[in-house]
Design a binder for these strands. Structure first.
Lengths: 184, 184
DNA sequence: AGATATATATCTATTAGTAGGTAGGCAAAT
DNA sequence: ATTTGCCTACCTACTAATAGATATATATCT
């Protein structure tokens, strides 16, 4: 892997493991095997790296959205849930949740990029919920955006909360979302 | 207010504003008007302060639980929601959410205290949900603990997420929880 | 009552370490 | 010959934490 991509990947992992303000260029440098100052060649200031991490996640979500474009609403829901399942298995948390916690310490550019990412995610979830309801796969009351927020907040928070309680709580939430949504 | 209590209160606010790793003894010292070293007299190491912050929140929640002991399940739900409403209005986040994000950087003592706090909160919510269902005020499927987790994750995450989206999303979630729960 | 001891709460000064960031050099690839 | 990608060396600022001095109460003993 090229160094730049490697730095982004490690930063992403560190942010979702320890939080934005708890990782340093040193952490990344020692893992890659270069000097901290060399990271500055690729990302002059830390917020540049923060923005790059979010941009990469946006790209990845875009790719998922494209890939699942013509799949059923249930398949798209399962894909959404599987993304968080992977996060939870890795003892990490969602990027949005991590950076939202540190929001008041972030640069304007990082904040704006983060807003773009969260909107993209909410729009995607709203879309497949709406479609699932119109095809009578799903059943729920209120707007699809409201339901999307309810589901996204469940997943965003359970990856955080299950660090304190236990792993099973994650499955409980996942199953509860599906059971609540799928038309009987 | 005595200095010790003042320090705890400021630390609590800072943790829920910027996160545990983004606040320093200096931040607290300059607000109170004493020197950073003086904070060490009250809390030798930072984790001592972290534990004290959680302990104070546990005490406050205990007081709420006691006060609302004999009130209706609906009143207790409203009280629970109002706690998060106050947090959101203040542009802060929930202590559990903030420290869960930084969990992998925390001392064992802080982690354990945090677990105690989250258990207390989940037990309280489970209790009034269960009682609300048995008195036919609430309607929901599955165990009361599962429902408690769903509701707590909604609130924990929406105070974080609404920093990125907009304030109305908070009210949307709050209303959605009540509407979903209250028996028609 | 007066002297003495103790506890409380702060200060100044310092340490060791880490943070993000900059300047300038150098070797290899293009 | 220039760009790329890294290096060494450095800087400033901040971090948590410690040591030791000081001032002021408060309690205890004679």
């Amino acid at each position: 892997m090229n160094t730049r991509a490697h730095i982004i990947q490690l930063a992403d992992t560190l942010i979702r493991d320890k939080g934005y303000n708890a990782f340093s260029y040193h952490d990344i440098a020692k893992t890659i095997g270069i000097k901290p100052a060399s990271i500055h060649y690729h990302f002059p200031v830390k917020s540049n790296l923060g923005v790059a991490v979010i941009e990469k996640q946006i790209d990845r979500l875009f790719a998922v959205i494209e890939k699942y474009k013509s799949k059923s609403a249930v398949e798209r829901l399962d894909k959404f849930l599987s993304i968080y399942t992977a996060i939870q298995k890795d003892n990490k948390i969602c990027l949005v949740g991590s950076l939202a916690t540190d929001f008041n310490t972030l640069d304007e550019q990082v904040r704006e990029k983060l807003k773009t990412f969260s909107e993209l995610m909410l729009d995607w979830v709203s879309d497949f919920l709406e479609e699932g309801r119109s095809t009578e796969l799903f059943e729920f009351e209120g707007s699809s955006r409201t339901k999307a927020i309810m589901i996204v907040t469940n997943m965003l928070a359970i990856v955080q909360l299950s660090r304190l309680t236990n792993e099973q709580d994650f499955d409980t939430v996942k199953n509860s979302i599906k059971q609540d949504l799928i038309k009987k």
